[in-house]
Design a protein around this nucleic acid. Sequence first.
DNA 1: GAGTGGATTTCGCAT
DNA 2: ATGCGAAGTCCACTC
Lengths: 269, 269
Amino acid sequence: MFGVKLSDFKPLIVSVNPTIEEAEKIVKEALSKRKTLLVVGNCWVHYHGRASSKLEPGERIFIVKEDGSLLVHRPVGYEPANWQPPGCIFCTQIRDGVLEVHAVRRKPLEMVQVFFDRIQLASALSLEDTGEFALYASEEDMQKAILAEPSLLEENFKPISFEEKVEPGFVDIYGVDKNGRLVVVEIKRKTAGREAALQLAKYIEAIKTRTNREVRGILVAPNMAKDTQRLLETLGLEFKALNPKKCAEILKRTEKKGLEVFLKGESSP
Amino acid sequence: MFGVKLSDFKPLIVSVNPTIEEAEKIVKEALSKRKTLLVVGNCWVHYHGRASSKLEPGERIFIVKEDGSLLVHRPVGYEPANWQPPGCIFCTQIRDGVLEVHAVRRKPLEMVQVFFDRIQLASALSLEDTGEFALYASEEDMQKAILAEPSLLEENFKPISFEEKVEPGFVDIYGVDKNGRLVVVEIKRKTAGREAALQLAKYIEAIKTRTNREVRGILVAPNMAKDTQRLLETLGLEFKALNPKKCAEILKRTEKKGLEVFLKGESSP
DNA sequence: GAGTGGATTTCGCAT
DNA sequence: ATGCGAAGTCCACTC
């Protein structure tokens, strides 16, 4: 039931259908040694903090990670039924044959209490995970791609700045077109909707109060919600379709070249 | 290594340090029988869809739930490194000694591929979970509490209606104060910010176009973002602090009393 | 099916 | 520390 597998170089502790007492040992082992705790069993959960909740008994997967984050997963649903973000302080005990784990977080002050009365599986895991995670074609990547390759937007587009503060927020890209007109670019990683157009319009409006030059607004996104087309026309804005994947490819090709060239041009007079 | 525990009434399949082939059996068992799949081991993950990502090898917890949702959890962090919402279609195979699980989702079309080359723990779980989940002190609860106990807002406040359509949206509570002035109440379950004040202002504005009576706007929330104070003053609105927990208590006390009384008053002439 | 707003949102970055 | 915007947000609800 209770086995330490030294043969694997990883101190893996697993127990199937443990008693509450056996399970408590594993829980304490994991929590004290900063290991990842994995428990499957019948439990109920209380939460008090930003809100309050009560989860009636049922069989769930319970995880406490090395950083002190907590998850209670029901057998359906992407989201945990109860949870706690990283940085919790834990205490555990057995009371009336029930294994209790309390997770307290400061700022905001909140607490999750998990109560187990039957446990199918308990494990203290020493997980080694240094693998890098990379997400391609984010909005930032699309921005970088346009800065590195301005013709993606249109021929002879010249970026001036990016993430510039313009009262409602930050303009994604700011530049001039081949005719010397100012161009404000708003980028959306996915289908651009009403809000994107309105956001861009606000920027344009704010900028027009500070210049007499003509200002174009271009919404960049992989595609556009169909009702947004007319709104764009009403607002006098333009749309430029841009595939995020293409941006990712371009970024790979021009990795640390185009953007640095642009930044260098920025810092020089 | 591979055991079916019939003694527990729950068909629990668990294998510690299984071979890739043993693990594949468990994976197929879980996916075909709609059980919850739990795998701990060394894996790498590819994702393509709304964006693209690559997760380099490392030891993680991999879960597929009964509803076809997928989670890849690293040993730190609240959020899964990769995931798939419910409703995925799965296929699995061994290629070059690597166990692959592919999860495809339609609308939007996206795919997660998980590759295992070493597995510490594999389990097919039949989790029974019918326990009810209740979250207390939601915005709705706060609304009900005020309707049940109007003095929570202020002495001699008289609710007239709630969730009434007033062009920008729905007024949380609509009533009259002790001096017969109209009162519009906007409720926020947590810290009220700029938007809450502006939202309330819009309602007031809309209502003022339809009446000559004086209209007060009261923002109700556990607390307020500090910059919102001045905005409220500028807009001529008021703030009333209300603790969600207190609302929950009051609701428990007046359970199905206050609100019903109010509703009865509504339906009668 | 698409759009809209909320979340115990979480997370990261800038102030 | 705090505030603000983004997220492969997810999710529930309305149109």
